[in-house]
Each structure stands twice: as structure tokens, then as C-alpha cells.
Design a protein around this nucleic acid. Structure first.
Length: 249
DNA sequence: AAACACCCCAACCGCCTTTAA
DNA sequence: TTTAAAGGCGGTTGGGGTGTT
């Protein structure tokens, strides 16, 4: 399929009045403005209220996978990879469920990552090519660096390992037996998280389910690990908020 | 330098579930 | 209670970028 312009927009295609294909900066702006004014949801009204020639599904997808301000950018960290592997082993291809354990990552992102890195592993011949080896070495080097970083922060590493174990053991429990676990050090959710609770109309803390507590824990785990959103350490909550509210740099 | 292979990821499609009238 | 619309999810496709031959 090739995206042939039929209305001036580069690479875009119009089918039955709806534009398809790559989004333009202008369209993004309209969608962001719509969400700012009306919040998430009611995606089918976007075209009516903004003039955007995109159907509701397309708008939702664009927002969820690309425009949401709380999205993480950049490489999946080894820590996140571990979580993905663990949760995929448990839940299979339930990408959205897995994504909920990795705040800032989308189901699409995780799905893509899995397909790229794991799906064809079984097909790789026993005699791995040199090329593949080089890639693996490169990755191991990166992981080594991460490890060194962790060792510089022994307390945090310990916390991570304990938390991960506890989270995984919790997941082994039946739903009825779940007990929310909030590590002492991270009982207060990051400012950024609360901010987006407000923005996105998610339930208040008092309404949050046990699973929400669990996910908060993972969120914090990740941030402890240095896998922050924009490649810059959040040394204080203000800096984090700043990163989160200006994601389009 | 060109051709090829591979990786990454945005975006679409179809189906299923949820919600509201 | 039924039904249509909207939302959500997983699978798939295809293009751009980059590394390798």
C-alpha cells in the first residue's frame, strides 16, 4: 500500500471522507487541543468539533500511542524487558494488560518490541551468525552498563529486586488474595502521576483498585532504576513534571 | 556506491466488549 | 432487554532508517 495524497497532505489518503495514513503536525495540534478542552474519550466527536478528517478510532490510537503526554520515549530498558518477559510468560499476548504494568509504555510499543526481539528467537539456527552475535554483544554491553549503574546505587537495586519478587509473587496469588503492596520508600506517588490522574480523569486514589497500587509500585520501580521518561534523571518532582508537560521537544 | 537485510514503529484492520439509549 | 455506537484489543502491514555485504 502506498499513501498517495489526494488532498494536499503529504502521503495521506482520503477514503470516504476520512483521511488515512501518517498524521501531520497540524492534525496532531488539533487532536491535542481537543483533548485539552474535552478530555479523553468521545473520539467520534473529534472530527465534528475540530474539523479533523480522522475517524474516532484513528484519533484514539494516535492519542494513546503517540500524543499522550505521559508516554515514555526511548529504548526499553533491561528492567522493563524483564517485566515484559515475565508478564508475557504469564499472560501471553495480552499486550494492554502487560502495558499497564509499564507506565508510559503502550501496548503497541510492547507488542512491537516483543515481535522484534523475541518472537523469532526459536527460529534462529543453532549456529548463530556473527551479525547476530554482534548484536547480542552490543546488547550485553548495554546491560552491563545498566548493571554498573545499579551497583552505584546498591540500595535501589536491592529495593528493585525485592519489589520485583514481591510483585511477581503477588501475581501468583488469586485475585481474591491480592494485597496491595506499596514499598515504604515510594508510598507517595510521583507528582507527575497525580497530575495525569487529574488530566485524564482516571479514578482518584481512594477509588483506585488494588491493581492500581501494584502498578504504582512498578511505576516507581522503573523510575528508581533510572529509566525515566526523557533520558534525564528526575532529581526532583518539579523536573519530572516539567518533562511530562513538555513532551514534544 | 549500490543493493540488500534487518530493525523499529506508526498506523490500519477486524473482531470483541462495553456502554448508553 | 435489546441494539447500535463507541471503545478497546491483538494481529498485521509497510515505510523509513541504518548497518552490512
Amino acid at each position: 500500500m502506498s499513501w498517495v495524497s489526494s488532498m494536499g497532505g503529504w502521503g495521506a489518503l482520503e477514503v470516504e471522507g476520512w483521511r488515512k495514513g501518517p498524521w501531520t503536525a497540524e492534525e496532531d495540534k488539533l487532536l491535542i487541543e481537543y483533548v485539552r478542552l474535552h478530555g479523553e474519550g468521545r473520539w467520534n466527536s473529534v472530527s465534528r468539533l475540530t474539523g479533523l478528517k480522522r475517524n474516532g478510532k484513528s484519533c484514539r490510537l494516535r492519542w494513546v500511542n503517540y500524543l499522550r503526554p505521559d508516554l515514555k520515549r526511548g529504548q526499553i530498558t533491561p528492567h522493563e524487558e524483564n517485566i515484559i518477559v515475565e508478564l508475557h510468560a504469564r499472560w501471553g499476548n495480552r499486550w494492554s494488560t502487560i502495558a499497564r504494568s509499564l507506565p508510559g509504555r503502550t501496548d503497541n510499543e510492547i507488542k512491537n518490541y516483543w515481535r522484534t526481539h523475541f518472537k523469532n528467537k526459536a527460529k534462529i539456527p543453532a549456529a548463530t551468525s556473527e551479525k547476530a552475535k554482534a548484536r547480542i554483544l552490543k546488547r550485553q554491553h548495554f546491560q552491563q552498563q545498566q548493571l554498573q549503574h545499579q551497583q552505584q546505587q546498591p540500595h535501589q537495586l536491592q529495593l528493585n529486586q525485592v519489589d520485583l519478587k514481591r510483585i511477581m509473587s503477588m501475581l501468583d496469588d488469586t485475585d481474591h488474595n491480592r494485597v496491595p503492596y506499596v514499598p515504604q520508600e515510594v508510598q507517595v506517588a510521583p507528582a507527575s502521576y497525580n497530575i495525569f490522574n487529574n488530566i485524564t480523569d482516571t479514578p482518584s486514589a481512594s477509588e483506585a483498585s488494588n491493581e492500581d497500587f501494584l502498578w504504582d509500585g512498578l511505576w516507581n520501580l522503573d523510575d528508581f532504576h533510572g529509566g525515566n521518561n526523557f533520558g534525564v534523571s528526575c532529581t526532583n518532582s518539579k523536573a519530572c513534571v516539567q518533562n511530562l508537560i513538555s513532551p514534544f521537544c
